[in-house]
Every structure is written in structure tokens, then in C-alpha cells.
């Protein structure tokens, strides 16, 4: 079972490592890293479904006898885009959280919320957050 299906075992192990990182770490960035690992494991799983021994890329040619299945690759192209978008939104949120709280550790944020003010004070922080996020973005792409 393991010998013949070792590819699937490896990819499911990768998914589990990713999921474990998401659950066990309190740092928001590490959670996102775990989430990406988890997604990449699934992407590899899909790609491996379409692979054929000795199969070539699906470009029609006279010398080629066997092709790998192109459909899973196309699907995963879409899923990678979705994954990148998720990661981008997650990182943007992490930046905003860092601006509002000064930390990206989940337990410190929760402590801060239960002790600190959450009314009018945080309103202004939120508004400032948007403004400076814009600037940070531009700096990020420049450097």
C-alpha cells in the first residue's frame, strides 16, 4: 500500500504538516505559511492524479505515444490563483492587525482586546490603518 501509493502518502503528510502549523501556531504569519503548505499539498495531489509513467506534456507531437492528463494541471492553475489571492488578503489583514495592535501574536492580541479599550479609540486606529496600508503597499513594491 505504502510502496505503490507513496506519492499520495507524501502529499497527505504535507497537507497534515500544513494543517498542524495552522492549528498549533499563534503567530498569524506562521498560520498563513501553514495554510499555504496545506494548499500546496492539495495542488500536488491533483497534479499527481494526472501523471502517467513515461507520459509527456500534452502538446501533440508525432513521436509521443503517451500524454499526462492536462485537466488536473489546468484546474490547479486556477486553484493556485485562488491560493495566491487568499494569501494576499491574509497578509494584508496581518499588516492591518499589526498596525492596529502592534503585534501579530494571537494571544497578545486577545489579551489586548480584553483589557484595552475597544470603542472610539480603536476607530481612529482603524481609519489610520487604511491610509498607511496604502503607503506600505507602494513601498513594498518599490524595494
Amino acid at each position: 500500500m505504502i510502496a505503490t501509493h507513496y506519492v499520495y502518502w507524501a502529499f497527505f503528510a504535507l497537507m497534515l504538516i500544513g494543517l498542524y502549523v495552522v492549528i498549533s501556531h499563534g503567530n498569524l504569519l506562521k498560520k498563513l505559511i501553514g495554510l499555504s503548505l496545506f494548499q500546496v499539498g492539495v495542488f500536488l495531489f491533483y497534479i499527481s492524479l494526472g501523471k502517467r509513467y513515461g507520459g509527456s506534456a500534452s502538446i501533440i507531437s508525432e513521436d509521443v505515444r503517451a500524454y499526462s492528463h492536462p485537466l488536473p494541471q489546468v484546474l490547479i492553475l486556477t486553484a493556485i490563483v485562488v491560493g495566491v489571492a487568499t494569501l494576499a488578503v491574509g497578509l494584508a489583514l496581518a499588516v492591518r492587525i499589526f498596525e492596529a495592535y502592534g503585534t501579530v501574536e494571537e494571544d497578545e492580541i486577545t489579551d489586548d482586546d480584553s483589557t484595552g479599550p475597544d470603542g472610539a479609540d480603536s476607530d481612529s486606529t482603524g481609519a489610520k490603518g487604511t491610509g498607511s496600508l496604502h503607503k506600505t503597499d507602494r513601498h513594498g513594491s518599490g524595494s
Binding site: G90, L93, D118, D123
Partner: peptide, 21 residues
Amino acid sequence: RRRRALLAAFRYLVIGSVGAV
């Protein structure tokens, strides 16, 4: 309105993406 919304959104993002995957 409140900064707690950011954390709520982040948590939803992580859990929701795991669900979608």
C-alpha cells in the same frame, strides 16, 4: 468599525480557507 473586526476577518479567512481546501 472596531479593530476587532480585523482579527475576526483573519480568523474567518484561516478557518474558511481550510474548509474550502
